[in-house]
Write a protein that binds this DNA or RNA. Structure first.
Lengths: 115, 115
DNA sequence: TGGTGTGGTATCTTTTATGATACCGGGGAG
DNA sequence: CTCCCCGGTATCATAAAAGATACCACACCA
């Protein structure tokens, strides 16, 4: 029936989330809604135009975000989560929750090692 | 109060799961319990010894898995999930569930494009 | 005596991801 | 006229991840 091994599914999700700037892009779009290119760029210190473009394109390719071009001058391009993209939210939340505990744990370790 | 940006938490989780062989290692250990090195290796076609060692060491470093060496000849080394490692299960399950739908979606897209 | 199984290391090469930098068109501000 | 803003592209360089290959000690088996 199903020939694809189980772990491939996990890797599918992982491959979409993996990328230096993708998690933060997704969090911005989820939490603050539709954003313009430079708006995102300003909120992500350190990212270069090229990298931001690339990561956005890859997310768009997977139908996680939608890119809307307004035929104006100067150009206006907006990025928004798709419904499909929003289906990633449980994963991001699970990771966020886990990460919170991970941070706490690290702190405790540091304390015990310095005491 | 909290100076660490929210997305860092997500990236913490991601950084632990990311690695070509880590998801499958974790799934094997979760589903089949403690495993020896070569036992894992045989279940992961294509992995080289070096890569398997590296990924296992990284997971051990993060306290996700535990490495037990039995002072025998020939050597016997076992890998097992730690309790902490098992706390990743909700994330892996969320990704697995998402991946299942992702696969279905891709298939549907192919069908509509070839019809 | 030579080959096998165990759990690795040490090098080297290739592939992939990320980054720095320069450039673009065209309107609007000064 | 000159510069900036916007949302990019193109080129080149670097860093990081992954892979190929060879080697190791030791005991066991035949």
């Amino acid at each position: 029936m199903e020939k694809v091994p189980e772990q491939c599914r996990v890797e599918d999700a992982l491959s979409i989330l993996t990328g230096k700037w993708k998690p933060i892009i997704l969090l911005h779009l989820l939490q603050e809604g539709t954003q313009r290119f430079n708006e995102l760029k300003r909120k992500m210190p350190g990212v270069t135009q090229k990298m931001l473009t690339k990561q956005l394109r890859e997310l768009e390719e997977e139908d996680i975000i939608a890119r809307t071009i307004y035929p104006q001058v100067p150009p206006k391009v907006e990025y928004a989560m798709t419904d499909y993209g929003r289906s990633l939210e449980p994963i991001l939340e699970a990771m966020h929750e886990w990460g919170r505990n991970h941070t706490l744990r690290k702190r405790q370790k540091q304390q015990t090692s310095t005491s």
